[in-house]
């Protein structure tokens, strides 16, 4: 938000983090979170981290293939990640449970394939706590 201060305008940039709990196919919440991320970056704020938790881990699947007339939310996150070097973190415990694995986890758990999309990484819940502590605002997008 620009704030007039005498002859100057001070741009008060804030550090945001988002917690995304919804799968792209299950509710509107992941699409809302992606739109909100675009809006806050367009306003000049910083996006410190996006943490995908619970069913939100499906946002990080490289194997989802929505119909062409529907928005591809995972691809939307990836494009934003490339443009703004975002930290897209998928909760590792929630992801293992739902079959979202990177190659080292797939090897370790002796699973036949890995499907974590490019631009996302697996990490623990500590990264959500870290985001809460190090951001001015943590916005939760529910299931």
């Amino acid at each position: 938000m620009p704030r007039p201060a005498g002859h100057f305008t001070i741009w008060q940039s804030m550090k945001f983090s988002l917690a995304v709990y919804g799968a792209p196919h299950a509710s509107q919440s992941a699409a809302t979170a992606l739109r909100f991320a675009r809006a806050l970056l367009a306003a000049g704020h910083e996006l410190y981290r996006v943490f995908f938790y619970c069913d939100g881990v499906h946002n990080g699947s490289a194997l989802s293939a929505p119909p062409q007339d529907e928005a591809d939310i995972a691809e939307g996150w990836q494009a934003l990640q490339r443009a703004h070097k975002l930290d897209l973190v998928v909760c590792i415990a929630a992801a293992q449970r739902r079959g979202v694995l990177n190659s080292s986890e797939a090897n370790r758990l002796e699973k036949p394939a890995a499907n974590l999309a490019e631009g996302f990484e697996l990490a623990g819940l500590g990264q959500l706590a870290d985001a809460a502590v190090n951001s001015d605002r943590l916005i939760t997008f529910g299931q």
Partner: peptide, 8 residues
């Protein structure tokens, strides 16, 4: 955009 500013 207004939602973002409400959050700030």
């Amino acid at each position: 955009a207004r939602w973002v500013s409400l959050c700030t």
